[in-house]
């Protein structure tokens, strides 16, 4: 199950003067039912890699399989049933007269009845926190920025994918909109059991969200592991053009003045907990 990638390389515009190698020899496996973050500096190949997961790009060399289906031009339909893909700024893909119609577009193409499609679209709206009664029959272009994005996400969720690939889903939103989207990701994973692959360069967000972190550096696999290991390794992160989460920076700086303070926290909650424990330990002595 899940996504298996072996020896994947990808070159843009092969055999032209604009030829550009984007990914080199990647081999890894994304575990089922978890949230895996793909991180890296701008231009590290994150988005290129994400587009391989549902066959929008085909590897130049190497193979990739999704739920044991090899991704080839013949299995595209099957793969896209399994993998929902949410691009950066998905609100730009809205087009239909009403929000409900737009959301139902994908499943209607699968040949189910319009009534069933509408019901599923309403459910998807509720899932992303939009009220079908008040927003369902409005034009998608009348919604606010955050609402548009959630409507676009509903348009992918309506197809009930088992794997959801999201490219910077919170980019360009205000802090509240950001929070809502990240909470939604968590809810989809925990309640619906959807395997989530999320492309991001926000270490803070991913510290809170991800079960695994994969770091790309100039198209190469730089690191792959648990957030506790990845997000506390300053040197490795900096090599890849990323920074430590603020919580880790705080703890590592505090540890210089407070000997014995553990520096392995990488989320705000983790840091608070570690500090309380440290204080408790000191007063007990």
């Amino acid at each position: 199950m899940s996504i298996k990638v072996s020896n994947l390389s990808y070159t843009y515009q092969q055999d032209t003067p604009f030829q550009k190698e984007a990914l080199y020899d990647l081999t890894f496996e994304i575990p089922d039912g978890q949230i895996t973050a793909i991180m890296g500096h701008t231009g590290s190949g994150k988005s290129t890699l994400a587009q391989h997961f549902n066959g929008l790009l085909m590897p130049s060399t190497g193979t990739i399989s999704v739920n044991d289906i090899p991704v080839t031009s013949k299995t595209l339909k099957q793969v896209r049933y399994q993998v929902g893909m949410i691009f950066q700024y998905p609100e730009y893909q809205l087009f239909d007269e009403t929000v409900l119609k737009d959301i139902a577009y994908g499943i209607l193409l699968r040949g189910i009845s319009p009534e069933e499609a509408e019901n599923k679209a309403k459910e998807a709206m509720k899932l992303v926190g939009l009220d079908p009664e008040t927003h369902g029959n409005r034009s998608p272009f009348d919604l606010s920025g955050g609402q548009k994005r959630r409507a676009a996400i509903a348009g992918v969720l309506v197809m009930e994918p088992s794997i959801l690939v999201m490219d910077e889903p919170a980019a360009g939103l205000d802090p509240e909109g950001r929070r809502e989207i990240l909470n939604l990701v968590q809810k989809l994973n925990k309640e619906k059991g959807i395997t989530v692959v999320i492309v991001s360069h926000s270490v803070e967000d991913m510290a809170e969200l991800a079960d695994n972190i994969l770091i790309l550096n100039r198209g190469r696999l730089h690191a792959f592991g648990k957030p506790a290991d990845i997000l506390t390794d300053k040197e490795s992160l900096e090599q890849a053009g990323l920074e430590l989460p603020v919580a880790t920076i705080l703890m590592q700086n505090l540890a210089k003045r407070l000997p014995g303070l553990p520096t392995n926290a990488f989320t705000v909650e983790g840091a608070v907990e570690a500090l309380i424990q440290y204080k408790g330990g000191q007063t007990n002595e």
């Binding site: 587009q51 549902n54 929008l56 339909k77 896209r80 993998v83 929902g84 893909m85 691009f87 998905p90 730009y92 893909q93 577009y105 994908g106 193409l109 699968r110 348009g155 992918v156 197809m159």
Partner: peptide
């Protein structure tokens, strides 16, 4: 290109 890919992901043909 981006919109084509997005709609293709939703099953457009």
């Amino acid at each position: 290109g981006r919109i084509t890919r997005a709609q293709a992901s939703r099953g457009a043909d």
